[in-house]
């Protein structure tokens, strides 16, 4: 743990967005995404306004645009899917650059791209302004079953340990001259995965015994009870409420 205790997803800061209680932020992001998804796709300008809203939040949180955009690369695979849509959906065709594209397909691609991108941007902003542990506590405050939150917190805590274990195994293999080049080497990789499972499971058993010896009875004590003041809820609600106004405007102007 010498390399700092914050996860690399989190971007440390002291902005007003960082200071909001996690459950307010979670609820705000969820409501925002819900509003975005229920906006009619024909209201193109509305999605532009949503993007402006998110950019405002990012500026307020002092998250640089490059960081945000790099993290948003996660959606590249489904961009490929969206790009295919204009070619496979039947309907009226338009000619563009010598290609024949279908109009409903273009609308569908736009719909998925715009809503998906906004959703990804909102989640990335949430994860980069909230510490992992705080996020888990926020989920618990939002009445997720405590057991689920505990499992998630164990997964987050040991995720890096297990991933590092996988990396060490890969280094050990490579330092012995192994290089996975094709299907022939799947056997070795499968054995690695099997060994990783056994190590993870046995580590889980050891963690359980260690916790038992420290008085664990199946529930985690909540030490820092988080509360949110009315002002904090109001400022967190600013994002989804302004988005809701845009959405309603979009439906009426349609």
């Amino acid at each position: 743990m010498g390399a700092g205790h914050a996860h690399k997803l989190y971007r440390h800061g002291h902005s007003p967005v960082h200071a909001l209680p996690p459950h307010c932020k979670l609820a705000a992001v969820l409501c925002f995404v819900l509003v975005v998804v229920s906006t009619p796709r024909e209201a193109v300008w509305a999605f532009g306004l949503y993007a402006v809203l998110l950019a405002g939040v990012a500026a307020l949180a002092r998250v640089p645009a490059g960081f945000l955009l790099r993290r948003m690369l996660i959606e590249v695979p489904f961009v490929a899917f969206a790009v295919l849509m204009p070619f496979v959906v039947p309907g009226d065709q338009v000619q563009f650059l010598g290609l024949s594209l279908s109009v409903p397909g273009l609308w569908g691609a736009w719909n998925v791209l715009a809503k998906g991108t906004l959703g990804v941007a909102a989640s990335v902003l949430l994860a980069s302004t909230t510490e992992l542990r705080a996020l888990l506590l926020g989920l618990q405050r939002l009445k997720l079953p405590p057991m689920l939150v505990q499992i998630a917190s164990f997964m987050i805590r040991y995720g890096d340990v297990i991933t590092d274990e996988l990396r060490r195994m890969s280094i050990a293999r490579r330092s012995r001259g192994f290089e996975a080049r094709g299907v022939r080497h799947w056997g070795v990789l499968g054995k690695s995965a099997g060994a990783l499972f056994i190590r993870s499971y046995e580590r889980g058993e050891r963690v359980h015994l260690a916790m038992m010896s420290r008085g664990y009875t199946g529930t985690m004590p909540v030490i820092d009870e988080m509360t949110a003041s009315r002002a904090q809820w109001t400022s967190a609600a600013a994002l989804p409420l302004s988005a809701l106004a845009v959405c309603l405007l979009g439906w009426t102007l349609l």
Binding site: F154, Y158, I162, E165, L166, R181, L189, Y201, V207
Partner: peptide, 23 residues
């Protein structure tokens, strides 16, 4: 009380094994 640590570690395993690339 075994559920949380064991299921959590298995979830971490699933998460890690999804990063294991098979050529």
């Amino acid at each position: 009380e075994r559920t949380a640590p064991l299921a959590g570690l298995v979830a971490a395993f699933i998460f890690a094994v999804q990063m294991l690339n098979f050529p």
